[in-house]
Amino acid sequence: TSIVNVSSSLNVRSSASTSSKVIGSLSGNTKVTIVGEEGAFYKIEYKGSHGYVAKEYI
C-alpha cells in the first residue's frame, strides 16, 4: 500500500500514457495498492479493476 502525494487530485488513467482516457481521480493522502508498473506509471487497484497513475505522485 502506498499513499497519493498531491495537494489537489491525481488522475487515474485507463493505460500508462498521459494521453490515455481519465477514468477517475484520487485525492491526496489516499491509500492505493500497486499491482505493477509500466514506464513512468504504476498500475493500481481501482474500483474493482485497474488504473494507472504517474509514479512521481505516489
Rank of each mutant, 00 (worst) to 15 (best):
F41T: 01
G51W: 02
T1A: 13
I58F: 13
E38T: 07
V53M: 03
G48C: 07
I44D: 00
T30S: 11
Y46F: 14
S15Q: 12
I23L: 08
K31N: 10
T18K: 12
V32C: 05
G24Y: 06
V6C: 15
S19N: 13
V35R: 04
V12Y: 01
E37W: 07
A54L: 15
N29R: 07
S9P: 13
I34M: 02
I3Y: 12
A40L: 11
S7G: 13
E38G: 03
N29P: 10
Y42V: 05
S27K: 13
N5F: 10
L10M: 08
K55V: 04
A40S: 11
V22N: 04
V35M: 08
V32K: 01
K55L: 03
Y46W: 13
E37I: 08
A54F: 11
I58Q: 03
A40P: 09
F41N: 01
H50G: 04
G24S: 02
N11E: 15
V4K: 07
E38Y: 08
S20V: 02
V53S: 01
K31A: 11
A16D: 02
S49M: 12
T30Y: 07
V22F: 06
S14R: 08
E45T: 09
R13W: 15
T30C: 11
K55S: 05
S20H: 04
A16Y: 03
S25A: 10
E45L: 13
I44Q: 00
G39V: 03
A40C: 14
K31Q: 13
K21D: 11
I3V: 12
S25Q: 15
Y57M: 10
S2F: 14
S9M: 12
I23Q: 02
V35F: 05
S9Y: 12
V32L: 07
I3Q: 09
I34F: 03
K31F: 13
S25Y: 13
E37S: 08
K47G: 12
K21G: 07
V12D: 02
K31I: 14
Y42M: 04
E56Q: 11
K55T: 03
H50I: 14
E56W: 08
R13E: 03
A16P: 14
R13G: 04
V32R: 00
S9F: 12
S19V: 08
V12A: 01
L10S: 06
G51P: 00
I34S: 01
Y52W: 11
S15L: 07
G24L: 05
S17Q: 07
A40G: 13
Y42Q: 01
T18M: 15
E56G: 07
V53K: 00
E56R: 11
T33V: 14
I23F: 03
S2D: 08
N29D: 09
R13H: 15
G51Y: 02
T33R: 09
I23E: 02
F41I: 01
E45G: 03
E38H: 07
I23N: 01
K55N: 02
S49T: 12
G48R: 04
S49G: 15
S14W: 08
V53P: 01
S20A: 14
T30D: 11
I34L: 05
S49L: 10
L26C: 03
N5T: 14
I58G: 03
S20N: 02
Y57C: 15
S49E: 09
N5D: 09
S14G: 09
I3T: 11
H50D: 05
S25L: 13
G28E: 11
V12M: 03
K43W: 04
K31G: 06
S17M: 07
Y52G: 00
V32Q: 01
I34D: 01
S27F: 09
V12K: 00
S8H: 15
L26D: 00
S7W: 08
N11K: 14
L10W: 08
K47V: 05
G24M: 06
K43L: 08
E56K: 12
S9E: 11
K47M: 14
V12E: 01
N5M: 11
E37M: 09
I58T: 05
A54V: 09
K55C: 03
F41R: 00
S49K: 10
A54E: 15
G48L: 05
K21S: 13
E45W: 09
G48Q: 06
S9H: 12
G28K: 14
V4G: 14
T18F: 15
S27M: 13
A54Y: 12
K43I: 13
S19D: 14
Y52D: 00
T30G: 06
S27W: 08
A54P: 15
I58E: 04
T1S: 11
I44P: 00
G39I: 03
K55A: 04
V22A: 05
S17L: 06
S49Y: 08
S9D: 11
E56C: 14
T33Y: 09
G36P: 00
Y52N: 01
Y42C: 03
E56F: 09
G28F: 12
V32I: 12
T18W: 15
I58C: 05
K21H: 10
I44G: 00
S15K: 10
S2R: 08
H50K: 04
H50C: 09
T1N: 12
V22W: 04
A16K: 02
F41E: 01
L26G: 00
Y42I: 04
S15T: 10
T1G: 12
E45D: 08
I34E: 00
A54N: 11
S25F: 14
S2T: 14
L26F: 05
E45N: 08
Y52F: 10
I44W: 05
N29E: 08
S14H: 11
V4R: 05
S9Q: 11
T33S: 08
E37F: 05
I58H: 03
V53Y: 02
V6R: 04
F41W: 13
G36A: 09
H50W: 14
S15F: 07
T33E: 07
K21F: 08
Y46N: 01
A40D: 14
I44H: 00
G39N: 06
K21N: 11
S19R: 09
V35N: 03
N11D: 15
I44E: 00
S9G: 12
S49A: 11
S15M: 07
I3C: 15
E38A: 07
L10H: 06
Y42P: 00
G28S: 13
G51S: 02
S19K: 10
E45H: 07
T30I: 08
G39F: 04
S9A: 12
S20E: 03
E37R: 05
G36C: 08
E45Y: 07
I44N: 00
Y57F: 12
T18Y: 15
T30P: 04
K31C: 13
G28Q: 13
K55P: 00
V4Q: 08
F41A: 02
S20L: 03
V12F: 02
G36F: 03
E56P: 05
H50S: 06
A16V: 04
E37Q: 09
A16S: 07
Y57A: 14
T33L: 09
S27V: 12
N29M: 11
Y42E: 00
K43H: 03
G39E: 05
V4D: 06
G24V: 03
I44V: 06
V4P: 07
K21C: 11
G24N: 02
K47L: 12
T18S: 13
S19C: 12
G24P: 01
L10D: 03
H50M: 08
S8L: 11
G48K: 06
L10Y: 08
V35E: 04
A54C: 15
F41Q: 01
S27Y: 10
N29H: 10
S49I: 11
S27E: 14
G39H: 05
Y52Q: 00
Y42H: 02
G28H: 13
Y42N: 01
S27P: 15
L26T: 03
S20K: 02
I44Y: 00
E45V: 12
S27G: 10
V22T: 06
S7K: 09
I58S: 04
T18A: 12
A40T: 08
N11M: 14
S25N: 10
V32Y: 06
S8T: 14
G24A: 05
E38S: 07
S17P: 00
N5K: 08
A16F: 03
K47A: 11
T30F: 09
A54H: 09
S19G: 10
S8M: 12
F41D: 02
G48A: 06
Y57D: 15
S25R: 14
T1L: 12
A16R: 02
V4E: 07
G24T: 03
S49N: 09
G28Y: 13
E56I: 14
L26K: 01
G28L: 11
